[in-house]
Amino acid sequence: MNFKGRDIISIRDFSKEEILFILERASFFDKNKTSDHLKEKVMATLFFEPSTRTRLSFETSMAQLGGKVLSFDDVNSSSIVKGESLHDTVKMVEGYCDLIVVRHPKEGAARYVAEVASVPVINAGDGSNQHPSQTFTDLYTLQKELGDISKTKIGFVGDLKYGRTVHSLSLALAKFGLPIVFISPKSLRMPQDLIEELQSFNIKIIEEESIEKVANDINILYVTRIQKERFSDLLEYERLKGVYQIDLDLTSSFPHLKIMHPLPRVGEISPEVDGFEGAIYFRQAHNGVPVRKALISMVLGK
């Protein structure tokens, strides 16, 4: 499989076989942490909104492969504030690098940048649309923790209506034909069009309001944050925010569960859970590095 020159924009663009190939490469970089096979290569990070952890993860990955990083992340100091169009910024930057990593608040911006740029583009988040390196990181975590991705029996919990990570990961898992459980209050359920898209893969889907009712049917509990800014009624937020508190009561009742979270968390997982052996969210975050190394080196044809 050759990914040279390819853009990494959306999980929708990848087949099951391509995903497995990327995970295999990630596993290679997990075992071989440093090398210099990308020396002389330059990656530009074009961040139109701040995201320290994503940017650092990409920059670390490039540095450990011997490549150089150009940061265009300080929007205030660049010509963007002078009114330069996104098109022109990309045309300028592509001349300085071999690869562009872009993050932008508008949905679809990464696809647009990829169409403008002559170098490969990796989407590091385009508004509430896609964040494929996060999705590949989640998939790699499942494979690593369970030994085989096909053993995944995942339950997503929290804000499923607006959760970008949940939408992308569920779509990827559907390509593997895996069953999915969605746990949320009625007002934060998965969007209907996405449920229909998942159903087109003929997978088993369960929608439920209680973790306890389905905990024995799953082995992964993927927790997401219920975001305050999504609520026009703050009383409704206060009612819902504590509903899915992950604490030691839950983990001791269901010790077989592995807990994932895209981070940052804001209280939905109690710190005391960190010591629980199934708490894998920090390992999940660290898996972002080998996965990003795999993506960077594949699109550069190395």
């Binding site: 169009s85 996104l86 098109h87 932008h104 608040p105 508008k106 949905e107 679809g108 911006a109 696809r111 647009y112 169409e115 385009d126 508004g127 509430s128």
Partner: peptide, 12 residues
Amino acid sequence: PNPECITNHAQA
């Protein structure tokens, strides 16, 4: 119709 779509903000 999505106001946050890039096509409503760039010459796409």
